[in-house]
Amino acid sequence: MEAADEIDWHRGIFEVLRAQGFSLAAHVPDAGHAPLIRMCEASAEVDCVTLTTEEEGVGIVCGAWAGGRKGVLLMQSSGVGNCINALALPAICRIPFLTLVTMRGEWGEFIPWQLPMGQATPGVLRAMGMLVLRAERREEAAATVDAAAALAHNGRQSVAVLLSQKMIGAKVFEAG
């Protein structure tokens, strides 16, 4: 069995999304998503859209679905707050909306400014009617995204997967 730290969970997520027919990834870059973003950019089958702010990704993913394409929004937890009113669109239209959120402001966080939005993230998403799943361990990351994507599209739901900071690894800063 593969050791946990050898599992390429970014690759696993990319493969389950491709297997479910996702062809659009909208993102505000985050270090925790960087390997997945690189895979999307390298793929001829995936359009990778860099956003200026996360809420743009809500409209893009919803518009793409109206046109018959599956998309996903990749963001850091700090971006979730930017999306709140935009989430009315998938909520009221029951558009399948999937977002993968790399968590900050929890396990081992060094930057206190990340705490308020990081801690509020699950509550904010639920307050907007989203289903919230969470991956704590590398072994479960791909399977959780697989389940969330199916839940979103089979059930026409807005679904978020929180990728825990413990799994991603907290950013380490050297004091200057």
Partner: peptide, 9 residues
Amino acid sequence: PFALGLAMA
């Protein structure tokens, strides 16, 4: 943003 996603699709 919705129009952009639609145009891409």
